[in-house]
Simulated assay, not measured.
Amino acid sequence: MKQTIAKRTVRVLRCIPAVFGMAAIFAASATTGEEMNTLLPFFQKLFPQMTSFDWGHFAAYFMLAATIDFAIGAKSDRLGIKVLIVLLCGLYGITDEFHQSFVGGRMPDAADVRNDMIGATVWVALVALPQVRRLWRRIAR
């Protein structure tokens, strides 16, 4: 019985980074369009050829996928779980865009959800590489 409680506690604790990641994304979504326009030119200067690609969404959902992978643990090695991680990130991305529709100067954009899912997909593809997976398992024990 004690071991079962301990395992559940560990599972819950492993979810905390994902919850914080989701909270950070939610907070960023609450940033008005005017405030966002101060950051956008910086990234457009760094990557002028990628004007329609939002690196912020890519990076946020790359990290969110990593935290969800961490929460799931060793079971995330399965292909079905990897697909689930990307779908969960995509679903959260859709709710993020819906949230933005209520923020001044912001509007929902399907391209943002695309970038969210690209970030999550890159994470699951990267961590599927054997050397990266071994390193990740050592870190995420």
Rank of each mutant, 00 (worst) to 15 (best):
M1L: 12
S52H: 15
A59V: 14
A27C: 12
L135W: 14
K45A: 12
G93L: 01
M63K: 08
G33A: 02
E34Q: 14
R114F: 15
G33L: 03
F26S: 11
D109S: 07
I139E: 03
Q131M: 11
K45R: 14
F62L: 10
W55H: 07
K2R: 13
C89I: 00
F98L: 14
D112W: 02
G104D: 13
A24R: 03
A28I: 05
A128W: 13
I72A: 05
L91E: 02
F26G: 06
D109V: 10
H57I: 00
R133H: 10
K75S: 10
M107L: 09
R133C: 05
F98Q: 02
A111F: 15
V12C: 03
S101H: 04
D109L: 08
E34N: 12
G119W: 06
H57W: 02
A128C: 08
L40F: 11
G21E: 03
F42T: 07
G104Y: 12
A6I: 15
R106F: 10
F42Q: 09
G80R: 03
K2G: 06
Q3H: 07
G56F: 03
T31D: 04
D112E: 04
R114V: 15
A23N: 05
V132H: 02
G90E: 01
G33F: 01
D116S: 04
D54K: 15
I72C: 04
T51M: 13
Q3T: 11
T51R: 15
T67E: 12
A110N: 07
I25H: 00
I81D: 01
I72W: 07
Y61N: 11
T9E: 01
M50H: 13
T95W: 00
R78K: 09
P108A: 12
L88G: 02
A6F: 14
T67V: 08
L13P: 04
M63F: 15
D69L: 06
A111G: 15
A24C: 09
A6T: 12
Q49E: 15
D69R: 13
D112H: 00
R134G: 09
A125D: 03
A18R: 01
R11P: 05
G93K: 00
A65R: 05
A140H: 09
